Simulated assay, not measured.
Amino acid sequence: MITVLIVDDEALVRAGIRMILAPVDDIEVVAEAADGAEALAAIDRDRPDVVLMDVRMPGMDGLTALRETLRRPAPPQVIMLTTFDMDEYVHGALHAGAAGFLLKDTPPRDLAAAVRTVAEGHAMLAPSVTRRLIDAYSGQPPVVGREARQRLAALTPRERDVIAAVALGLSNSQIAGRLGMTETTVKAHVSRSLTKLGLSNRVQLALLVRDAESG
């Protein structure tokens, strides 16, 4: 069972998300929160697997709560939710360590799929968000690319091969098949790469690879 915390300052939005997820057999909403501070308390108390976090909230906003969440030991996966697909929120959330970014008008079926996807350790982005990221990274200044390549130099050639495949959106099993290794070895390479680079998840790895390929 995948346990979920819903964080949004609007009670109707929380109720709507709960209603969408309630019939899903393998997902259970264990708590709700109206702002970032309540979310942190609920995370400590209920230990959810996945947090659906609104970006714009009074008091502690979603980005601040995201950063505080990821400082905790064994933090949950966090999907950021918003009515806006503005670049500043997308980049801020993903670089901070969000596992996904969805718009609030995401179809119910896709919302449940997103929860499952991030619970398995994969990234999940709304199609419009993905398009904006691709457009943004095509125009990154050269210095960004140089700095990213310098960071990646700390990895072994095999680790770089693995995270390049991660940046393509491949699963561990797909990477294993492509590179001729076991899934366990792939997971080990990803884990070591995250540690060496000081990153939180596969989304950040993918963004760093994209940075290195720009400029």
Results as ranks from 00 to 15, higher is better:
N172R: 11
K187S: 15
D161K: 07
R151H: 14
G139V: 02
V115P: 00
V115Y: 02
L179I: 07
T185Q: 14
A167C: 08
V78Q: 04
T182Q: 04
S138M: 13
T156A: 14
V166R: 05
A167L: 04
A99G: 08
S193Q: 07
H91M: 13
A96I: 09
L81T: 09
T195R: 15
A148N: 14
R151G: 12
V90P: 00
R131M: 05
G121R: 08
L125V: 02
G97C: 06
T117K: 03
P142W: 04
H95S: 13
A123Y: 00
L179F: 09
V129L: 03
P141W: 06
L168Y: 10
V129K: 03
G177M: 03
A112S: 10
G169L: 11
A188T: 15
D110M: 06
E147V: 15
P142C: 05
L194P: 10
V203Y: 00
D87N: 09
G97H: 09
H91Q: 10
P142T: 04
A154R: 15
R151I: 14
D87G: 01
G169W: 01
L199G: 12
P141R: 03
R202H: 05
L111D: 01
H189C: 13
L179R: 10
R158F: 11
V190I: 15
E120Y: 00
N172E: 10
A126F: 00
L94F: 05
L170F: 08
E183T: 14
L194R: 14
V203K: 03
H95A: 11
D105E: 12
T195P: 02
A112D: 05
E120Q: 13
A148F: 05
A126T: 01
V129N: 05
I175A: 06
A96T: 11
S191W: 12
P108A: 06
E120T: 03
A123G: 07
G100Q: 01
S193M: 04
L199N: 10
A136Q: 12
A154N: 11
G100M: 02
L199S: 12
L111H: 01
V203T: 14
R116F: 02
L102I: 02
M124Y: 03
A113F: 00
Y137I: 06
Q174W: 01
R146L: 12
R131W: 00
A99D: 09
Q140M: 12
G121A: 02
R202N: 07
R109H: 09
L194F: 12
T106V: 13
L94C: 06
N172K: 08
S171G: 02
Q174Y: 01
L81E: 09
L103Y: 05
L170N: 05
T106C: 05
H95T: 13
